[in-house]
């Protein structure tokens, strides 16, 4: 309990402001090379190739999305075959009346394709968007960085690099120096 409250007293980390893409890109490469793990770049738009400069891995969104597609297709097929009450999916009254529609077979799978496709797209899109939010731990309506007035210009034309104090490599002085050496202006402590 006390430990936690002590930690709460500690700052979130350090933050430095950059004014153009090139400098923040170069700085990111240096932080990557310095072995930091818990740091981040704030930029008003996704800078091209910055993921390499930061040494980020492939996003996992694709996997979530792929799973979503599979779930959607399976769900759609199951739903349609089951409600049509056809074939092996005939499980008594649960599958509803086995109604004869225009003398077509109960499992007229050709006609089930459009809904299958649409549901696949729907669930996979959910996977992409909500997966992205999940990985990013959004929504998160509170963040220490947001309390910094200077950081509020990140959505406009400023670039930031922030290093969390929790980073094993974090050292108040060294990190500050690294920030300044890469051309950061206004290196500030971010309160927790």
């Amino acid at each position: 309990m006390s430990e936690q409250s002590v930690q709460q007293q500690e700052p979130y980390g350090l933050m430095g402001e950059y004014s153009d893409v090139t400098s923040v890109y170069r700085a990111a490469e240096q932080f990557r090379d310095a072995g930091y793990t818990m740091w981040d770049v704030g930029c008003p738009f996704p800078i091209h190739n910055l993921d390499e400069a930061m040494g980020l891995k492939q996003s996992k969104v694709a996997w979530i999305m792929g799973t979503g597609a599979a779930v959607g297709v399976a769900l759609a097929l199951f739903m349609q075959m089951w409600t049509a009450g056809g074939g092996t999916l005939d499980i008594g009254w649960l599958s509803g009346y086995r109604v004869n529609v225009a003398s077509k077979p109960l499992l007229a799978w050709e006609q089930f394709l459009p809904v299958t496709f649409e549901l696949g797209v729907l669930i996979s899109s959910f996977g992409a968007i909500f997966g992205m939010l999940m990985i990013n731990r959004l929504p998160m309506w509170y963040h220490p960085l947001m309390k910094k007035e200077r950081y509020l210009r990140v959505g406009d034309d400023k670039f930031f690099i922030s290093i969390e104090a929790k980073d094993p490599k974090f050292n108040d002085a060294k990190t500050r120096q690294l920030l300044e050496s890469t051309g950061a202006a206004h290196v500030e402590v971010v309160e927790a």
Binding site: V99, A102, S103
Partner: peptide, 20 residues
């Protein structure tokens, strides 16, 4: 009372179907 009634296949709610 078409055996392959075109009306049945297009009803989205199965309101018109064929009896045995």
């Amino acid at each position: 009372h078409c055996e392959t009634a075109p009306c049945e296949v297009v009803c989205p709610v199965n309101a018109t179907t064929h009896s045995k």
